[in-house]
Simulated scan of single mutants.
Amino acid sequence: MTVDSTAATGSGLDLSELVADRALLGRTSTAERVAAILRERVAQGLFRPGVRLSEERISGALGVSRNTLREAFRLLTHERLLVHRLNRGTFVRVLEVADLVDIYRVRRLVECAALRGLGQPPFPLDGLRVALREGEESAARGDWAGCATANIHFHQAVAGLAQSVRTDDLMRGVLAELRLAFHVMDDPQRFYEPYLTRNRELLGALEGGDALGAERMLGFYLEDSRRQLIEAYPEQYPAR
């Protein structure tokens, strides 16, 4: 796949938000904590696919050693968010269509199963409500990148209904990886606005105690999203 040369350079990135993230590290800057911050920033779209990550700038912004940052890079490379290229550095991965197919396969297995496994209502839906409100507020501001982030938070909360720490960890990586593909949509409002409505409908079904209906809705939802992304993807990143 090819990447625009401007996008492939990280020199123009505004890392001021990373400076604010220093407070999240506390006194001990472990690689796991640094990786968690970078994973969230990838999920938010701060680092676009194909961008080279500058060790000097990022370690300086976070106030951590390069050794700690390199270990965080290794962790995120293992999670398929980054890729190391010999003598060139570390880059944010550019997904291929096969990656999207696999990501949506995992999403269907995990998210639909989380709804299927719900017991008797009322269900613990506060996380979904918070994420939906976040998306609606972002949409009202015309902040469609923020809406994309809120959508990821919504589906993380859906998976969280399984009440499994391991599932939560899995989906954090899967959804952060998916965020690498969202930028291909030329008209983000046209893409995200209907799914914001569908998130509201999904939450409504769960609030009404209809977990089976919500699972059915989610299945159609995921298939529509998968199809739209795959149709748009080759236009942005044609195979080499």
Rank of each mutant, 00 (worst) to 15 (best):
T2P: 09
T2S: 02
V3W: 13
G12R: 07
G12N: 07
G12V: 07
L15A: 04
E17K: 08
D21I: 00
G26P: 03
R27T: 08
T30Y: 03
A31C: 06
E40Q: 09
A43V: 03
L46D: 11
R48K: 03
P49R: 01
E56P: 04
A61R: 03
L62D: 02
V64T: 09
T68V: 14
E71P: 01
F73H: 15
R74C: 10
L75S: 12
L76P: 02
E79W: 12
R80N: 15
L82V: 15
V83Y: 04
G89H: 10
T90G: 11
V92L: 08
V97Q: 07
D99T: 04
L100V: 10
V101S: 04
V101I: 05
D102Q: 12
Y104T: 10
Y104D: 11
Y104V: 06
R105H: 03
L109F: 02
V110L: 07
C112R: 11
R116Q: 09
P121A: 04
P121W: 06
E136W: 11
E137D: 13
A140G: 01
R141Y: 00
D143R: 00
A145T: 03
A145D: 04
G146Q: 02
G146L: 01
F154L: 10
H155A: 09
H155F: 14
A157W: 07
V158G: 06
A159G: 08
G160C: 07
V165I: 14
L170K: 09
R172F: 06
V174H: 08
A176D: 13
A181L: 10
D186R: 14
D187T: 14
D187C: 12
P188K: 05
P194M: 02
Y195Q: 07
L196R: 04
L196V: 13
T197D: 10
G204E: 14
E207H: 12
D210F: 13
E215P: 08
R216Y: 07
G219E: 10
D224E: 05
S225I: 04
R227N: 06
Q228E: 07
E231S: 15
Y233K: 09
E235K: 15
P238F: 07
P238E: 08
